[in-house]
């Protein structure tokens, strides 16, 4: 009965003014990207994505960015917010310093198509090249392929990847050399290399033994810091390196 009295008052969510400093680029009219500021009134429960929506829906419909699920699962809205790669849908405005403008840029290392949208093709090509599917030999079993909880736990961390490219586009090696597979492709490979049901580990390790494979990683840990899923990306890369060094999966 007392629960009624404790219910929060509607509209009690604090609201505040926030300046969004957006990196805009229209390939039809601009030769260089430019900054554009918008000040909007937002609420304590709003995320950066909500601010972008408000700008797009109420101020400037030409603002272009990707988002699908808007709940941190699809991996569409990775962007560089205040100089760090994050998902716009998982970053609460109240967690950012609001006395300064919030900068929102496209992720680095991939060509900007328009505003916050980048060309993801090289990123997905790298992922494809490590063969992100189960490789087996012999006849298919008549029932499911069984795996112990311990074997499943071996690669649990890297199953969480949503392919948002926050890690790959935070990597200084990838910025300077787009031929590098990038952290995400290695995470994708790790997920199968250390899967006890998969038999393609040797092939995948050979692919990553390339000049532009795992050895380009300089353990700067930017990818681990950037991952919105909390994957220990550098740890996964190091495990692949050690598997190559000692041929032990």
């Amino acid at each position: 009965m007392t629960a009624v009295a404790e219910a929060p008052v509607a509209g009690a969510v604090p609201s505040f003014q926030v300046t969004m400093r957006l990196r805009r680029f229209n390939p039809e009219t601009d030769t260089e990207p430019r900054w554009e500021d918008h000040t909007v009134t937002m609420h304590g429960t709003d995320r950066v994505l909500d601010a972008l929506h408000k700008i797009k829906w109420e101020i400037d419909g030409s603002l272009t960015f990707r988002r699908s699920c808007a709940h941190g699962i699809c991996g569409s809205d990775a962007m560089r917010i205040n100089g760090r790669n994050r998902l716009a849908c998982k970053t609460l405005l109240k967690d950012l310093p609001l006395d300064k403008p919030i900068t929102v840029e496209p992720i680095k290392g991939l060509a900007v198509l328009k505003d916050l949208v980048v060309d993801m093709d090289p990123f997905f090509e790298a992922y494809k090249s490590i063969m992100p599917f189960l490789i087996t030999t012999g006849n298919d079993p008549s029932r499911e392929r069984r795996q112990s909880p311990e074997d499943r736990a071996r690669y649990d961390d890297t199953t969480k990847c949503i392919m948002c490219a926050a890690c790959t586009s935070s990597c200084p090696v990838y910025w300077s050399d787009g031929q590098y597979f990038g952290p995400q492709a290695i995470v994708g490979a790790h997920r199968f290399i250390f899967d006890s049901r998969d038999e393609g580990a040797e092939q995948r390790l050979e692919i990553l033994n390339d000049r532009d494979g795992v050895w380009r990683c300089r353990t700067t840990f930017n990818c681990t810091d950037a991952c919105p899923r909390g994957i220990e990306v550098t740890k996964a890369i190091q495990e692949v390196k050690r598997a190559l060094l000692f041929r032990r999966v």
Binding site: T219, F221, E232, Q238, R242
Partner: peptide, 15 residues
């Protein structure tokens, strides 16, 4: 530190 990150399995976690 980098040697430990490379060769100690817990290195990346404690970097």
């Amino acid at each position: 530190r980098i040697v430990l990150v490379d060769f100690w399995s817990k290195g990346p976690r404690y970097q």
